[in-house]
Amino acid sequence: MKEIPDVVLEEAAGGSLAAFEEIYKSASGFVYSVALRVIQDRADAEEVTQDVFIKVYKHLSSFESRSSFKTWLYRITVNTALNYTKKIQKERLRRRNDERILENQEVPAEAENRLDQEDKEKAVQVLLSTLNPDQRACIVLREIEGLDYAQIASALGINLNTVRSRLKRAREALMAQARKGVMKK
């Protein structure tokens, strides 16, 4: 995410739509990517992105520029995504299973010929799908966004030991998934 100048944040907080659009252009990719990886559904991730930016617009005037805008945005994004996930968990699970069936039917012809970005992205999605939403959020913030434990704890509103134990369990699950893959080959 590009750094957003304080003056842009202040103008947006004052109600400037042009300034807010600038914030959106700088941060929407980051918000959407985090939401997509936690939720694992494009339409839902777009809805969460929408919710996140409307929340940001409404509360920007109360945001203190002394703290990091990025950390604040992480917190809103991850919490909105997790709440959304919990709300629609059953529905999403059913849909994802349907998509997986479709994916399994489509993949073989292409997969062996090329290892392009789409395949890597699919691998990421498959790995993340083995985790529960809380573990997923931790892994996304740690491995993709590069946050340290203290930043993850702050973004998720949990303590350091909880971050540590969620990452540990997530990695155990990912290792188990990797072993399964090796055994299949």
């Binding site: 691998a123 993709i144 990797a178």
Partner: peptide, 17 residues
């Protein structure tokens, strides 16, 4: 461990809505 739990995520790209 690195191969299984870290490397795949390093190449994840930012997506655009």
């Amino acid at each position: 461990l690195k191969q299984a739990v870290a490397t795949p995520f390093k190449e994840a790209e930012e997506k655009t809505p």
